[in-house]
């Protein structure tokens, strides 16, 4: 408990994050290289989709991350709203651009995977549609944050929005699924996990962990930036900046 108490203060979190970043960055780089080599070279082509299924190794991890980051963001928002913990708001604010990036990657790679599979760039597939709405939710969150000047109000207002969003995401997901099954054209091939062999599953899991580590690495960098910006008038920030010369 003492540990959490200490490191939830920006002053102590800042150096801790600084020490963790190189490690996280190194792990990300190694996992990315292993995952890419395994996914692009070692894994055999799919018997149905050929080599196009290899898009899965970026598409699926970013789709997973897009949801995961929203959950992290909403939990951070709730903690900052209820207990008024500054660091939780920093966490939520720093997560949003990363989550939006993962969502964007999932959308574009999904569309690039869909073209050879479906013959068109965009199909109103349940998963792509949900991902698109998730992207809008991220954009709304960031737009709200950006248009409020007072940082306290920006934190609280966006926290409410994130909490409303997380309550709605399952409903939206379910609605889009239902809508899609009703309108599903018979000829369309389902985009998604091809019959997964262990040789495909291992690189997928490695890439998923790599994306996760990437998120943590950049998150820490972003959180440090936020902290510096918010605490710029405090003595400890002055010491850090002075120490750098």
């Amino acid at each position: 408990m003492n540990f959490f108490h200490k490191y939830s203060s920006p002053k102590h979190f800042y150096p801790l994050a600084g020490r963790l970043i190189p490690w996280f960055g190194a792990i990300t780089a190694v996992l990315m290289m292993v995952g890419l080599y395994w996914g692009l070279v070692i894994a055999p082509p799919d018997y149905q989709q050929g080599d196009s299924y290899r898009i899965m190794f970026v598409h699926v991890p970013s789709a997973w991350m897009s949801l995961f980051v929203y959950v992290v963001m909403a939990v951070g928002a709730a903690i900052s709203f209820i207990w008024n913990i500054k660091l939780a708001d920093v966490l939520a604010a720093s997560s949003a651009p990363l989550g939006a990036s993962f969502t964007l990657i999932a959308l574009v790679t999904g569309s690039l995977w869909g073209k050879p599979m479906w013959g068109t760039w965009w199909v109103w597939d349940a998963r792509l549609t949900s991902e698109l709405i998730l992207f809008f939710l991220y954009v709304g969150y960031m737009a709200l944050r950006a248009s409020i000047d007072d940082p306290r109000r920006a934190g609280q207002s966006s926290a409410i929005l994130a909490m409303v969003g997380i309550v709605n995401i399952p409903i939206i997901h379910f609605s889009v699924d239902w809508w899609h099954t009703l309108h599903q054209p018979a000829s369309v091939m389902k985009l998604g996990a091809p019959t997964i062999y262990i040789t495909m599953l291992i690189p997928l899991i490695i890439m998923a962990i790599a994306f996760q580590m990437f998120y943590f690495t950049v998150l820490l960098v972003r959180m440090r930036n936020e902290i510096l910006e918010r605490e710029k008038h405090t003595g400890w920030v002055a010491d850090i900046v002075d120490g750098r010369g």
């Binding site: 050929g50 080599d51 196009s52 290899r54 898009i55 970026v58 574009v108 790679t109 690039l112 050879p116």
Partner: peptide
């Protein structure tokens, strides 16, 4: 060549 899917696979990885 990615089994003929080069355009899609590499633009997906490139974009990411």
């Amino acid at each position: 060549a990615m089994g003929g899917f080069a355009v899609y696979v590499w633009s997906a990885y490139g974009f990411a």
